[in-house]
Design a protein around this nucleic acid. Sequence first.
DNA 1: GCGATGTGAAACCAAAGGGTTGCACATCGG
DNA 2: CCGATGTGCAACCCTTTGGTTTCACATCGC
Lengths: 104, 104
Amino acid sequence: MLATDTEVFSALGDATRWQVLTSLAERGEGSATVIARDLPVSRPAVLKHLQVLDRVGLVGSRKVGREVLYSPRAERLEATARRMAELAAAWDTRLAALKKLAES
Amino acid sequence: MLATDTEVFSALGDATRWQVLTSLAERGEGSATVIARDLPVSRPAVLKHLQVLDRVGLVGSRKVGREVLYSPRAERLEATARRMAELAAAWDTRLAALKKLAES
DNA sequence: GCGATGTGAAACCAAAGGGTTGCACATCGG
DNA sequence: CCGATGTGCAACCCTTTGGTTTCACATCGC
């Protein structure tokens, strides 16, 4: 597993960050201010979460006038999911081989 | 996303824990002492990681005499990967619908 | 029986991280 | 032009957590 994948998991391992992501996925696009409005945390907190998510590629951003709109990046999530599935399959294979070896 | 999934991600979001998991996947099975031997951390540290991984279902354990052998649970990893993929697909659908709406 | 080895758990440390308040700057609208 | 609103960032607090050392107990082998 690459170091960057660990960072993605770390980013996903926080409940508030999931709320931010969910809110973003429902809206499609939104600023930190708007997202903070329906979450029980302050805007700076949401902003920091968005920066974390942006750094690992789970969201993107575009500037429109004075506001910055963030949006979820499904590809990143999907790519990580795929690598996880591959890894799980590799474990299965490995474990089966070891078990067979133990029986002989 | 369920609360338990967040905990799984949190568990996967640590580099040392991945080393523990990888070491375990290669051996198939192993005790905290054995794993700690080829990692740059102490045995208690490895033990705590294994307890975290056990609590979220990413590893299992069985007792053999005085030693406890841990082994990776591929199903758990695979299940989480599947839910991630489903979520990514849901995002795609949602985003496409919103984009279409914006154009009309 | 007894030393050697393995185990879990507690006490303790230092770093990381989620949260807040406050501030300085940019942009929109009257 | 100027107030209202939006933005990023710094400073700070407190909790979490990864790590260590240390201890008491269980099991193996001679």
